[in-house]
Design a binder for these strands. Structure first.
Lengths: 211, 211, 211, 211
DNA sequence: GATGAATGAGGTTTCATTCAT
DNA sequence: GATGAATGAAACCTCATTCAT
């Protein structure tokens, strides 16, 4: 019964991968990038050090995988949103709500991902094999929304890709702000609402926006 | 003329410090944090490894020093701005112009600083002796501006500290965006104008803003 | 036969540890503490530098391990002695014979251990995890002997712990005397006999003790 | 007036030497050998680092000088003792009293000296230019005493040099015992009395010796 | 003599990765 | 596939000593 055996192997294999994922997330959330050594990862996942390399080419790939996975949940939500109809402003508001909440929850994992990407960028070794498909899909959806909003005159007549980049930047920066002032963030909802407001209506927008 | 001699010494001493600063900036701009090892720094500055430690207690202090220095120039400009009078929107616009341009120029140095701070935050060893006075002064000026603008009803009635935090986040995120898409940034002015627009009037603001 | 394989592994593992032990002893005997650098140790043991840290947390642990091991043999002998019966003086004589001979043989290794301990004491960081159980067991045996001897009126009515401390001091000092005048020690037996005599009967004791 | 100038220089020079001595003693007593860096020494003495090398060839010489000086006071006392007459036992008792008290007081300084000597011995680079005259004079006096005592039949008929070596060893070991159990030494007098007793009458001597 | 900036060899430790079993 | 001992390149930091002024 080779088939069963293969299935078994596949299941077992993916189980190990899963265990590594869980362990990596746990370590990242607790101690950030610094704490994520292969030894600890293997230990936390209950496998040997060498085994890690059966599932990931190197440490980078682990972080990338974790990052991808961490974004998956939020991707589902974003992609499930029907963008083609309804008020673009309301849609953007909803998406921001989702994204910001997610960014807050996964701040440390995302921080590790960011660090990795920055490192690659600085070394000019941006890996061609890491396209970060998940993030890309999310961002494309946002671009689409911006494009429609601009066409309808609701959003400013601006390159939607650029708009997305700026939005992305803010989310990106918010990650670190969340980490740096972690203990001061008492009421996340309030903070998120404020951030949303500033993104949507700008620093000079007059809308009160606290219904 | 011992005085002259002492002056000379002082000059020489500060020259080494200066050389180290220049070398550090150079390395950071070229290769980012990764490339900044004590050995290379010393080599680039034309001194011995041990000499570095005559000027800085450890590696952190170097990055902090460079960061502080890098912000000094922009700080001058920001502090020179008279905030108590004039249209808050115009003032914010000008300040953003200054800040964004600076952030673009010093992106890699600032990235290293950010990384250091994030690392500290993740280790929960936020150093008490590094207050980043320069950044603080800039941010306090912004807070002041937000406070006045809010009081005059030009800015939204929001906690000015929070506003500053969000603005900071965006600038922060823009650093990495600049690094990541470095080669795609053809027209900096255009990008900066767009970013400014989005910050000032938000993603849903109607102001066309392209005179 | 996985068991054999595991045994093999265990043997191999302990072989490396053993090699490190042997190498450390060799270096200490040849050059003392000064010569014991991680690099040389690794080289002498035929392993890479990093391997050392797979077996010992840090340099201290190596010396402690070596010290403990060096005392083990003598500990066996001492603990094998039945202290509860027989002439305390004869027993002390025998134990001193054993200890002094051992101290002479391992003088350099013990000197390194002493240095480590002194350093710790001076730094006031006496490590709680290094109890030097072996030495402790030996010393407790001596204390016991002193206690019985004192009770029987053979030894002076003195705090046995204090007696042990003084004995220990002398042995301790003898280590260095052995090292310092190494080349002058022609007849070890003679020297040991003299030391024993002075310890047993004091500088003013009248017993001739040279059969 | 070149003469006055020279005298002045000499005085000033010896003052610096003195300051260095005081500083070295202070540091050694406080922190032991570990704390004695040239930089701290110079700082504590109120001179520049380079100046130290105008007075001492290298670090070793400093410790040797300090050691010599530390023994001077006790040497005076010992040499002032008239050994040619009187009960050798009483004389030895008195000398031991002096030596032990001194060893307790200067334990850390002497420990540094010991370490230095051991290091030299281990490296087999026993410096020919450091004879430790002071210690030698003390030891020669002891040897003399032992010789007379042996001749008179009060001390055992043993090589007086060997006797001195053993006595030295004990004193030597006591240094470290004093450091290691520093905080437990409540009543120095008591401890010293006990040590003296054991040295004089041995571990098997019957004399009670607590008048 | 005094100064103190510069030196650079030397030391310890970490950790991603490999590979024989 | 799993294991984990071995690897060794790097990194940081210390400090006795030199030497031009």
């Amino acid at each position: 019964m080779p088939k069963l055996s293969e299935e078994k192997k596949a299941v077992l294999g993916s189980m190990t991968r899963e265990a590594l994922y869980e362990a990596a997330v746990g370590i990242l959330q607790e101690e950030g990038w610094q704490g994520l050594t292969i030894e600890r990862l293997a230990g936390a996942a209950g496998v040997a050090k060498g085994t890690v390399y059966n599932y990931f080419r190197d440490k980078k790939e682990i972080v990338y995988f974790v990052a991808e996975r961490s974004l998956e949940e939020v991707k589902e939500k974003v992609l499930a949103t029907d963008i083609s109809a309804g008020d673009p402003v309301r849609l953007l508001d909803e998406l921001l709500e989702t994204l910001l909440r997610h960014v807050f929850e996964k701040r440390r994992t995302l921080s590790a991902m960011v660090r990795m990407i920055v490192e690659d960028a600085e070394m000019r070794t941006m890996p061609c094999d890491f396209k970060n498909h998940t993030a890309r899909e999310i961002r494309e959806k946002m671009v689409e929304l911006f494009r429609r909003g601009a066409a309808e005159g609701v959003f400013p007549p601006m390159d939607p890709v650029l708009m997305d980049a700026v939005l992305h930047s803010t989310l990106h920066g918010v990650i670190h702000e969340f980490i740096a002032h972690e203990e001061q963030v008492r009421d996340v909802d309030e903070v998120i609402a404020a951030v949303k407001n500033l993104i949507l209506y700008g620093f000079c927008g007059k809308e009160p926006k606290n219904p």
